[in-house]
Design a protein around this nucleic acid. Structure first.
Length: 201
DNA sequence: CCCTGATTCGC
DNA sequence: GCGAATCAGG
């Protein structure tokens, strides 16, 4: 693997975006292990992972010097989760387990595929707006949003380049109806987990 | 079962 | 440095 600046930039970008390692791997056409490994080496902030590896199964297990534990130093715990989206990061990546391929005796042919794309599973509870409620219907629109509801052409939001840099942009191609990505990118975005596994093919 | 990310260790 | 293998928690 040739970790060029560009690739690394993408990795960082996607990582920071909150995509899962597998997702990033898919985009970069590498395995998630590579992603995780590189990310770790780069010192990227660890994604919210449920596991806390402690045990040393195999080798290692050296005699740990029971030296001072030094409990002091109360470090500040993580304030909060900056991003909670986690797996739901990309637009409708939910399609993973969907599309049960064969399903014998099921008259439901292809429908299952790519149906509930941008489906919202977690109910978003947005109660009162944080920014004052004293704005029932501000007549603003001549400043920030002169022409709402116009140039609303859907476009593929596949990230290209590193967000934050001048070259970054989205695919922009016409997406498949019901999907956030164009046909080309949808194909790689929506891969059956079983199929992809760790195989990039 | 599937998913997820983290660490280890041979290369 | 790289990443597959392995581990481990949901």
């Amino acid at each position: 693997m040739e970790w060029t600046e560009e690739i690394i930039a993408q990795l960082k970008a996607l990582w920071a975006e909150g995509l899962s390692t597998a997702e990033i791997g898919r985009r970069l056409s590498i395995t998630k292990n590579a992603v995780v490994g590189k990310a770790h080496r780069l010192g990227l902030p660890p994604r919210p992972s449920p596991i806390r590896r402690n045990a040393k199964p195999k080798t290692a297990e050296k005699a740990e010097t029971p030296a001072a534990a030094t409990p002091a130093t109360a470090q500040t715990a993580t304030p909060a989760q900056p991003v909670k989206q986690a797996e739901a990061a990309p637009v409708g990546e939910t399609e993973k387990q969907t599309a049960t391929p064969p399903t014998p005796a099921r008259s439901t042919p292809p429908a299952a595929t790519a149906a509930p794309v941008a489906e919202e599973k977690p109910a978003k509870k947005e109660k009162s707006a944080a920014s004052s409620k004293s704005k029932p219907k501000a007549p603003l629109r001549s400043i920030s949003d002169p022409e709402p509801q116009k140039r609303r052409g859907p476009s593929c939001c596949w990230p290209i380049g590193d967000p934050g840099t001048p070259g970054f942009h989205f695919c922009g191609a016409t997406p498949i109806p019901g999907k956030p990505y164009c046909e080309e990118h949808a194909q790689i975005a929506y891969v059956r987990l079983r199929d992809r596994r760790d195989n990039v093919a």
